[in-house]
Simulated assay, not measured.
Amino acid sequence: MGIFKRIKTITTSGINGLLDKTEDPIVMLNEYLREMEQELNKAQSAISKQLFAENKQAALIAETTEYIGQRTRQAALALQKGDEAAAKLAIQEKINLEQQLSLYKQQLDAIKEQTIVLQDKFSELQNTLNELKQKKTVLVSRANVAKNSKQIQNITVSFGADSIFRGVTRMEEKILFLEAEVQVGGNPLNPLNSTDTTVSEEAIADELNKLKGEKDAI
């Protein structure tokens, strides 16, 4: 059992790690807002049903009240005609209707209380949604700034100012070397590049006389 528990823990942590990497804050914020809007729609639908039940109950109370008035008039009319049995029957129905009316009113009070609770919940959800929308605007702005900063950091890490500076220095040295080659190649004092190969007769005679003098001395 210990091994299986460890495997489950490792697997769960791995999945959670992947989820943390794939979660986009902005996407998740939009998802949370959609969920909140869905809850708000559910609350609004519940309020609509509650108000319908409330109106229906109020109509039932009005109808029962009307029936009570009818039975009261029927009982009075039966007594005027001397029909005591009909009067008792009307009074009995009147009493039953009054009992039902009392129950209907209690039910209406309970429905109204539920309506108030739902309306309060709806207002609370609506305020929360508005706050989340405002917070989302701020968080999206912060997320964009953070992403841009991270991209800049990644660029700095990838290339690095030091490597760029070394590259520029290397190119500068190469240019200096090329410039030196140009200067050496164009110097008229370079004997390798001299185009004047003419030797004067006087210089030849001087060298010849030197050689002759050295020979006579020997």
Rank of each mutant, 00 (worst) to 15 (best):
G2Y: 07
T197Q: 11
G17V: 04
S13Y: 09
L29G: 08
L79Q: 06
E54A: 07
Q99V: 12
I15A: 06
L60A: 04
I116W: 04
L97Y: 14
F52A: 15
A62Q: 04
S200V: 13
Q134P: 00
S45N: 13
P188Y: 02
E173W: 04
I95W: 06
K105Y: 02
L29T: 10
A46H: 06
A62Y: 01
S194Y: 07
R71S: 00
A78S: 12
L18S: 07
A87I: 14
V182G: 07
A146T: 05
K136G: 01
Q107S: 14
D196F: 04
D83M: 01
S158E: 15
R6W: 05
T9I: 07
R166N: 14
L40K: 01
K133I: 13
K133A: 02
Y104Q: 14
S45R: 11
Q119K: 03
L77W: 04
E31F: 09
E202P: 02
L89N: 15
I116D: 07
Q107E: 15
S194Q: 08
Q114Y: 00
F4L: 09
F122E: 11
Q126W: 04
Q44A: 11
E207W: 03
L101Y: 03
A90L: 01
Q80T: 12
E84D: 03
F159N: 12
Q151R: 14
S158Y: 14
I47M: 05
T64Y: 00
S48W: 03
L33Q: 09
M1L: 08
E181T: 04
E39F: 07
G17T: 10
F177Q: 10
E113V: 03
E54K: 09
E201Y: 10
D196H: 06
D20L: 06
L40S: 01
R6Y: 05
F4H: 07
A146W: 02
I68A: 04
E202L: 09
K135S: 13
Q99P: 00
A58N: 05
L129V: 10
A46I: 05
E131I: 03
A76L: 15
Q99C: 03
E201N: 09
A161G: 06
K150L: 15
I26Q: 07
E84K: 01
V145P: 00
Q74S: 08
V145G: 04
L139W: 00
